[in-house]
């Protein structure tokens, strides 16, 4: 199996999973059922996490099926580069919006731990964002289908694709990042700032669960989680700048693959602390139950691993 296979496997999740999440959210809103809303937020958040490797493996799939000759991309005769880049543009837009939706879904889940009802401003934001994202995602999926299934293509599609021959958005953003000498270092600096915010949250929350500073209740350290998700947001944004600017450094870099796998696992891990009552009930002076300690230890392992793989990108991998 290569990364092109992985993309073919993963690419169904964002559209179908997001559709299910959105449908469930609708039902939850109409039925005024907070548990259904909560379940749909979990789905929307998880799909946003899975969208990360989906987008990245798409860039790798392009690399697999087409060659780069002197900076220009040459695809086999039966494949249209224009169609691929159309797909990439919509996918990038849908991906960006999906991450923003996932962020609001996360905030909703975080708030619902303390106040059982989802805030109406957040419900509106999630609903609007999710509908727009789903629309963009459907177009991206449809464009993606056209790449390998010419039989479903209408003559109209072909004409539009040819008329749309232009610099794809991902390349344009990447070229912009490269063209400004200050931009890459600035993103690196912000990536480090985000790392500090994320890591301190990981440290405070997990060390408390493991038995450090027991006079603090879990509910108190839980208030720090948005700081961690803010750090993650900064790093996802700046990380994407690196990826768009120099995809060749990452798509065939095993350290990067491991880093992204760990990011997905860490995304699943954080849900333990938000959904399960065991950790939540740890009051001031209490010892956390073993299952919470295991989750905390896994979390520390994953984030140190993400730091390790990120740091090793230039040394064990091929990036600079």
């Amino acid at each position: 199996m290569n990364l092109a296979h992985l993309h073919l496997l993963l690419n169904h999740f964002p559209t179908i999973g997001f559709g299910i999440g959105l449908g469930l959210f609708f039902v939850g809103l109409f039925a005024k059922n907070e548990e259904l809303k909560r379940a749909s937020l979990v789905i929307l958040f998880l799909i946003a996490v899975i969208a990360i490797p989906t987008y990245l493996s798409g860039a790798a799939a392009l690399d697999k099926i087409c060659d780069r000759v002197n900076g220009a991309i040459k695809c086999p005769a039966d494949l249209s580069l224009t169609l691929i880049q159309e797909h990439e543009d919509w996918a990038l837009l849908a991906f960006a919006l999906m991450e923003i939706t996932g962020f609001f879904a996360w905030v909703g889940l975080w708030q619902m731990r303390r106040t059982p009802k989802l805030a109406s401003w957040n419900a509106t934001a999630i609903l609007l964002l999710a509908i727009i994202t789903f629309g963009f995602m459907s177009i991206a999926a449809n464009e993606g289908g056209n790449i390998r299934h010419p039989e479903i293509q209408s003559a109209e599609d072909i004409v539009t694709a040819q008329a749309a021959a232009r610099v794809p958005m991902a390349r344009a953003i990447g070229a912009f990042v490269i063209s400004k000498t200050w931009l890459w270092p600035a993103c690196e600096t912000l990536h480090f700032v985000g790392l500090c915010l994320l890591f301190v949250t990981v440290l405070f929350v997990n060390l408390r669960v493991l038995g450090f500073a027991k006079s603090v209740s879990f509910a108190a350290v839980y208030q720090l989680l948005p700081l961690g998700i803010l750090g993650f947001g900064i790093n996802l944004l700046t990380g994407m700048m690196f990826f768009l600017a120099a995809p060749q450094q990452y798509i065939n870099n095993v350290e990067f693959h491991r880093k992204i796998i760990f990011v997905v696992l860490a995304g699943i891990n954080v849900l333990y602390f938000m959904l399960f009552d065991k950790a939540w009930k740890v009051g001031a002076g209490d010892d956390a139950p073993t299952s919470s300690k295991v989750a905390a230890a896994i979390s520390l392992y994953l984030w140190v691993g993400i730091l390790y793989y990120g740091e090793m990108l230039p040394f064990l991998g091929n990036s600079f």
Binding site: L195, C196, L197, V200, T201, L203, L224, L227
Partner: peptide
């Protein structure tokens, strides 16, 4: 080390 220093301080 940086994450520990700046992280704890920023927290």
């Amino acid at each position: 080390g940086m994450a520990l220093i700046v992280g704890v301080s920023a927290g």
